[in-house]
Simulated assay, not measured.
Amino acid sequence: MELTLPEKIQLLRKRMGLNQGQFGAKAFNTSVETGRTKIKNIELGKQKPTPDDLAQMSKVLEVPPAILAQKAAGEPAVRALSRQGMLVDQAVLDRFHQLGPYLEMLNRAVSIQDDELIEHIAGKLSDVFTFSSRLEAINN
C-alpha cells in the first residue's frame, strides 16, 4: 500500500527522532510553536505543502526530494492490496534479499491459521529489516 504524503512525512520525521515542533522549526526556520502548528496541519492533511516546503523538509529528513514528490492531481494511487493478498514491489525484494522466502512461509502459516508460526515468522521478518538497516548504516 502506498503511503500518503502526510504519512510519509510523519514516518520520516519520527525516524529522525524529531517531534513536530523541532522538525517544523528546522525545516521552516521558525519558532518551535509555529513549526509544530505547520507540521501538525501538514501531517493531518489540513495544509498542502508547497514545492519549496517539500524541498526544505526533505533536507531536514535527509531524503531526496523525490521521496516527498506528490502525484499529479487526479492521478489514481496504485493499490497494493487485493483480495488475494498484498503485492510487494520488486525493489523491496531486491533490497531485502531474505524477504521472499519469509513472505512465502507467512502466507502458508496464515492459510493454516497457525498463530505461533505467524508470530515466529513476523519476528524473522523484523530481523531481516533490522539487519538490512544496520548494514545500510554501516555502508553509509
Rank of each mutant, 00 (worst) to 15 (best):
K26D: 11
A80H: 15
T30P: 06
E116G: 05
I67A: 13
N29L: 11
F129Y: 13
M57A: 06
F28C: 06
V128I: 15
M16H: 05
Q113I: 01
Q98R: 14
G45W: 07
K59N: 13
L3I: 02
M57D: 08
D114S: 03
L11E: 07
A25L: 00
S58G: 04
R83M: 10
F129V: 04
V128M: 03
R15H: 12
P64K: 13
E75V: 14
G24M: 01
V88Q: 00
F96V: 01
K38R: 15
L3W: 06
E43I: 02
K8M: 12
G24H: 07
I67W: 12
G17A: 08
Q22A: 06
D114Q: 01
F96A: 00
M86N: 10
Q47W: 04
E62T: 12
I112E: 10
A80D: 11
G21D: 04
V32K: 13
D114W: 00
L11I: 08
L44H: 06
L103S: 05
L87S: 14
A25I: 06
A109N: 02
L12A: 06
I39V: 15
N19F: 04
N41L: 08
A73K: 15
Q84M: 07
A27E: 02
R83P: 03
G100Q: 12
Q98N: 13
D114N: 12
A91N: 13
G35R: 05
S111N: 14
N41D: 10
D52N: 12
E104L: 15
L5E: 06
H120P: 00
A72H: 11
A27S: 06
I121K: 05
A122T: 02
V63P: 00
M57L: 06
Y102H: 13
P64G: 03
Q56Y: 09
L99A: 04
A27T: 03
L106G: 05
E43L: 02
V128T: 10
I118A: 04
T50F: 02
Q90I: 13
V60C: 03
I138Y: 12
P64L: 10
M57H: 10
A91S: 14
G21Q: 01
S111G: 05
Q84L: 10
N107T: 14
T4H: 09
F96G: 04
N140S: 15
R13C: 09
L12F: 03
I9A: 02
K48N: 07
I138C: 03
F96W: 10
N139K: 14
L99G: 01
P65E: 14
E33H: 10
F131Y: 09
